[in-house]
């Protein structure tokens, strides 16, 4: 369990209260979120699922502190982000949220190491500490020997691992994963799923996965079903297990990948 999880006052990584978002496009008003209420406890691994048009992307933007609600409250790590100014919001995202994208969003001209340390650079983390953390995290995701490679020569699974290491570098309050396995084949996708589960169980990372992949969602603790801008139901993941998944050691995954 992380320090944050033990902190009684901030038991929740995320809380939303009657979250509304209305987009105005000319004469048309789109009511994307119509009162979302959700809570994510520290150390939880949950998923948000829903068909297209359910407001999933809009909710994702809110959870990522990339956009502000029209009405209602969103409290991340004890802070109501609707009131934060833009430049504070940047700092907030930098320190409290780790992003994982479907398309990895790595900078191809830079090395793996540089990509991972990007959030730490703008934070102003001392170089020595930064390099040490990068290496430590690359070891965790099983890319300890690939720090000086360029992302373009890595496989899709490896690229997503780089992105996961990047998401972890500033020790965020939670990780927000947007379709993390969407661009990967089944086998590699499963490996990334296992890595996320392992991070949650071994390191106590709070993770929110936004996906339409029900199989992936089923492996999380809770599944929030979003429909027409509201949480329609909330059910526990059926394949969620309190034990560790089978292939989860970085070394094992590495060798599994080499065999494939």
């Amino acid at each position: 369990m992380t320090q944050r999880a033990k902190d009684g006052e901030k038991a929740f990584a995320i809380e939303t209260h009657d979250l509304h978002k209305i987009f105005v496009a000319g004469m048309v008003k789109v009511h994307a979120l119509r009162g979302v209420n959700m809570k994510v406890r520290n150390g939880e691994l949950i998923s948000v699922v829903g068909p297209s048009g359910s407001g999933k992307s809009t909710l994702l933007n809110m959870l990522g502190a990339l956009d502000r609600p029209t009405k209602g409250k969103i409290v991340i790590d004890g802070v109501d982000i609707a009131r934060l100014k833009d430049h504070i919001l940047s700092v907030f995202r930098n320190r409290r949220i780790g992003f994982i994208f479907q398309t990895y969003n790595l900078i191809n001209r830079s090395t793996v190491e540089k990509n991972v340390e990007l959030p730490a650079i703008v934070r102003g983390m001392p170089k020595k500490l930064r390099k040490r953390r990068v290496q430590e995290l690359l070891n965790v995701v099983g890319l300890g020997d690939k720090a000086n490679r360029k992302p373009a020569i890595l496989s899709g699974g490896e690229q997503q691992r780089v992105a996961i290491a990047r998401a972890l570098i500033n020790d965020p309050a939670f990780i927000l994963a947007d379709e993390p396995t969407g661009n990967l084949d089944t086998k590699t996708g499963a490996e990334i799923e296992n890595l996320l589960i392992q991070l949650n169980k071994e390191r106590g990372a709070t993770i929110v996965i936004v996906t339409h992949n029900l199989e992936l969602a089923d492996k999380t603790q809770r599944i929030l079903h979003l429909r027409d801008g509201v949480i329609e139901k909330e059910i526990p993941g059926t394949t969620w297990s309190s034990g560790l998944p089978q292939i989860n050691r970085p070394g094992d995954m590495d060798s599994a990948m080499r065999e494939s």
């Binding site: 940047s90 969003n105 703008v122 500033n170």
Partner: peptide
């Protein structure tokens, strides 16, 4: 555009 979007998402402010 995407690169800038990413940098902003991970905490690079307008000034930076």
């Amino acid at each position: 555009t995407r690169e800038v979007g990413l940098l902003k998402a991970i905490g690079y402010g307008n000034t930076v």
